[in-house]
């Protein structure tokens, strides 16, 4: 007896290959999406919700919904407006000078000289060390009695009296901006150096043969060729500096008398020291809106640059 088996048709896969491929793609994205959901998306909604409540950590009995109360408080808070102005000074003071000195550094590091690789790495150091380390190093340099800066300036004769740089309202902002410049020069230096390396040598040679001097070559070749990278790096830096709170928080805590209080340190102080989460929430939402406007502008500007 022979048993006969019918050829069964191959089962069609439940899900077609194409759909399966798409599902695998989504599957790979799940961990990253979860990370962003838990640490960015949910907290943003939480911040918006917090901003609508009276929520001071050590006054739980006062916890209640107050609608736009925190925002009204914000509008009437002179420190908030002062902090916005300080942010503008901080951002433009820092970024403008970082850019000028960073460009000069990039031009120097682009030249051929012995030990160039080592010098390039060493000059990047201020940029990679933790913000708190930068803050502490400079706090010690600015120290009125034992700091290097007072000692050096008196030695050169530029100054006759010791200055308490960080605890005087007149000098504190300048002092933290100077520190931030020190820290940010390498950023522009590497970005612009990468740009310089991508400019073909032939352009310079041709201009040279045509009799263009060194300054006119810089103006007519280097600057236009670097335009995209200048726009992108400056825009990134402006957003980043606006948000950056570590350095000021470590060096002055926003003081003296709010002289160095920028909006991001003010938000930090509300959340960390005052523990007024409702108000911190409202400030966070303001920061978020400013950030979104900046980013939208950034995308527009960089898109314009790419399409050229």
């Amino acid at each position: 007896m022979t048993s006969v088996t019918l050829a069964t048709p191959r089962t069609r896969p439940l899900i077609s290959w194409r759909v399966r491929k798409r599902m695998i793609g989504y599957l790979y994205l799940v961990p990253a999406a979860l990370c962003m959901l838990a640490t960015v998306v949910v907290p943003i909604f939480l911040a918006i919700k917090m901003s609508l409540y009276a929520d001071v950590l050590y006054k739980p009995q006062d916890y209640r919904f107050i609608g736009l109360g925190n925002y009204l408080r914000l509008i009437e808070d002179p420190v908030f407006w002062h902090s916005l102005w300080n942010s503008v000074v901080w951002v433009f003071g820092s970024v403008f000078l970082q850019f000028i000195f960073g460009f000069a550094a990039a031009l120097l590091l682009h030249q051929a000289f012995p030990g160039r690789a080592l010098v390039r790495t060493l000059t990047l150091l201020p940029w990679i060390i933790p913000g708190v380390v930068v803050g502490l190093i400079w706090q010690w340099l600015y120290q009125p009695n034992y700091g290097f800066i007072n000692d050096f300036l008196i030695w050169t004769g530029l100054m006759s009296e010791r200055i308490a740089w960080l605890s005087s309202p007149d000098t504190a902002m300048g002092a933290v901006i100077f520190t931030n410049i020190w820290r940010g020069i390498p950023f522009f230096a590497i970005m612009l150096l990468a740009g310089l390396q991508s400019v073909p040598d032939e352009l310079y040679e041709a201009a040279h043969v045509d009799g263009a001097g060194v300054f006119s070559r810089f103006w007519h070749i280097t600057l236009p060729m670097l335009r995209p990278i200048i726009v992108v790096s400056t825009a990134t830096r402006i957003i980043w500096t606006f948000n950056y709170a570590d350095l000021i928080f470590v060096m002055t805590g926003g003081g003296p008398a709010n002289a160095t209080q920028i909006t991001s340190t003010y938000t930090l102080v509300q959340a960390y020291s005052t523990l007024d989460f409702g108000y911190a929430g409202a400030l966070s939402v303001v920061l978020l809106v400013v950030m979104l406007v900046f980013t939208a502008l950034y995308l527009r500007v960089t898109k314009g640059v790419e399409e050229e």
Binding site: M36, T39, V40, V42, P43, I44, L46, A47, M50, T236, I239, W240, F242, N243, A245, S264, T265, T267, L268, Q270, A271, Y272, F277, A280, G281, S284, L287, L288, M291, L292, F294, T295, Y298
Partner: peptide, 19 residues
């Protein structure tokens, strides 16, 4: 992902602390 790179950590402190 690009926008979140520019995100201020300060903004997340109060909500993350609550969380």
């Amino acid at each position: 992902f690009l926008a979140t790179q520019m995100f201020p950590s300060v903004l997340l402190i109060a909500p993350l602390l609550t969380q």
